[in-house]
Amino acid sequence: MAAYILLVEDEVKLARFIELELTSEGYEVRVANDGITGMTLARESPPDLAILDWMLPGLTGVELCRRLRATGSKIPIILLTAKDEVSDRVAGLDAGADDYVVKPFSIEELLARIRAHLRRVQEDNSDILQFEDLKLNRRTREVFRGERAIDLTAKEFDLLDYLMSYPRQVFSREQILEKVWGYDFVGDSNIIEVYIRYVRLKLEENGEKRLIQTVRGVGYALREN
């Protein structure tokens, strides 16, 4: 899936130029020409990375950056500015910006910075699996359905981890037994049905839609329907 970038820049021609370059690189781009609109777009659909101009009408890029960080957002933020004093760089970084590109700049440099930050995020997120509103963190062994934390046993977690690692792929009971319980498991193969039921009950506790589907005669899959 293409990374989604939010660009907040009040110079319309520059914004259009950057938007075209980003789109040609395969990114999904949304553009705002003032800080308030930028904040609204960021809240409506959180981007993978934001590019903010320093001097914006309504809400400066630095203030917008500060507000995004106050909401808990950890997305990479690149500030675009004509300001090149050390004090300005410090102010931008203190507000929570990850990077700082001084105008005029080469589009190649900006694209390289974007790739570097998105690559870092991808590496940081390698322990996080997500499908629809279901999120699993391998490092902390936490699971969330939307904002709701779900308490799973060790084996329930391992089962969900396996299904989430290969979304939409159908697995037989034998495959699940081998990967989650191991070759040396001795016991009733109905253990799969029992644990699938346990995990479903926890994932659907508040009436959420079913994500672990039974594929009749084959096994189970994590998919919409």
Rank of each mutant, 00 (worst) to 15 (best):
M1Q: 08
A3Q: 07
Y4M: 04
I5L: 12
L7H: 00
V8E: 03
E9M: 00
D10H: 11
V12S: 07
K13H: 09
F17C: 00
I18S: 01
E19S: 02
L20D: 08
E21W: 09
L22G: 02
T23M: 04
S24K: 13
E28C: 07
A32Y: 07
G35A: 03
L41C: 03
P46L: 12
L52S: 00
W54D: 05
M55Q: 15
M55D: 14
G58M: 07
A70Q: 13
K74S: 09
I75V: 09
P76L: 02
I77G: 01
A82K: 10
R89P: 01
L93H: 06
V102Y: 08
L118G: 00
R120K: 07
R120Q: 11
I128A: 10
L129C: 01
L129M: 12
N137L: 08
R138D: 07
R139V: 04
R139Q: 13
E142H: 11
R145C: 06
L152I: 10
T153W: 10
E156S: 03
E156I: 03
L159P: 08
D161I: 01
M164Y: 13
M164G: 04
P167F: 08
P167K: 07
Q175R: 14
I176R: 04
V180H: 03
W181Y: 15
G182Y: 12
Y183H: 13
D184I: 06
F185C: 09
I192T: 06
L201E: 15
E204K: 11
E204F: 03
K209T: 11
Q213P: 04
V218S: 14
G219Q: 09
A221C: 15
L222R: 04
